[in-house]
Amino acid sequence: MAEGQTTTVSWVEMEDGCRLYVKILGDDWTRSKPLLISLHGAPGLSTHAEPEASYTFLSDAFRVLVYDARGSGASSHTGPYTHERWIKDIENLRQWAGAERFILAGASYGAFLALDYAISHGDRLYGLILRGAWANGKFGPMNVLANILTSNKVQADRARQVRLWSGTLIDDQDFEDSIQELLPFYAPPETDSSTTTAPESTEFRGSVKFYSATQNSAFGENMPRFDVRSRLHLIEVPTLLVVGRHDNVTPVTASQEIANGIPHAKLVIFEHSGHSPASDEPERFEQVLSDWIKAEGMLNPRP
């Protein structure tokens, strides 16, 4: 963030009493800058920390809004943890921020929510940024589970991983144990697994909280119903997809399928990245996003 800028922290209350922990990166009291909202992944595990680390570089040009989704981090653990409710929270935050339209960025599970939002509220968007997504919520978790169980990078407890990806975790400790054993799985091949952090989180060591109820809702209830393949053509805004060549969770083929279905989409593959190009190749990630934003005229978007 540029020298002299600040981060504004707010608690924003939803109409059902749920309080969301929200940060606006960069000081713009006049609200003259366009708004960018970035969604974190890993429900019940991740927080605003990953999108804050990934998108702070844009805070000179945008009001960058990041937050802990309900059921994650410091925000209230007030259900339901459904796509419909999470999307309503996005709409509430858009209105709270005073923006008629904005850029929406979603990472991993946040990309699934971003796809659903773009299909239902596309008139509210200038653009869409997706990192690590799939369009078919039935096939996606089964494919990643198959990759885990055949991987030579991890020694995973099979039954526990089945519980993780089917949304049937026993408790919060079961959730933590399942993620701990998966750390090397998320990294590109050349990364030292001893330095790998948890997916979607820059705070893993000793401070991340695990909420299995949120994860269970996401993968036990939402994912079996998530299938946007036949509706991708409804997304009319410019869309950027980024994916790591070595992403074992949301592989290149999944992003390619989405790019093929969205009329105005650009796919960029990061050759030295796993599931998190923003942290695996940060300089290139920032350059790719900056170039795309300029090329699409989003620094001074139309009203």
Rank of each mutant, 00 (worst) to 15 (best):
S10Q: 10
W11K: 14
E13V: 11
M14G: 03
E15P: 09
R19D: 03
L20R: 02
L20P: 03
L20D: 02
L20M: 10
V22H: 06
K23I: 07
T30W: 00
R31S: 13
L36C: 04
S38P: 07
P43G: 11
H48P: 00
E50Y: 15
E52L: 11
E52C: 02
T56Y: 06
F62T: 10
L65I: 11
V66H: 05
A69E: 08
R70C: 12
S72D: 05
S75A: 13
H77R: 15
G79C: 09
Y81W: 15
R85S: 13
A97V: 07
G98C: 12
S108V: 09
F112W: 10
L113C: 14
L115I: 14
L115C: 09
Y117L: 02
H121E: 06
L128F: 05
A146L: 05
N147T: 14
L149I: 08
Q155V: 13
A156K: 01
D157M: 04
D157N: 15
R158A: 15
A159P: 00
R160V: 11
V162K: 10
W165T: 00
S166Y: 08
S166K: 06
D172C: 07
E176V: 01
E181P: 01
E181C: 10
L183G: 01
E190Y: 04
S193D: 05
S194R: 15
S194G: 01
T197R: 06
A198K: 00
P199K: 00
E203N: 13
F210Q: 02
Y211S: 01
Y211T: 03
T214Q: 04
E221R: 11
R231E: 14
H233S: 15
E236L: 13
P238I: 11
V243F: 09
G244H: 05
V249M: 09
I258T: 04
G261H: 04
A265Y: 04
A265D: 01
K266I: 07
L267H: 09
E271V: 01
G274L: 05
G274E: 04
P282T: 11
E286A: 14
S290A: 12
E296M: 12
G297R: 07
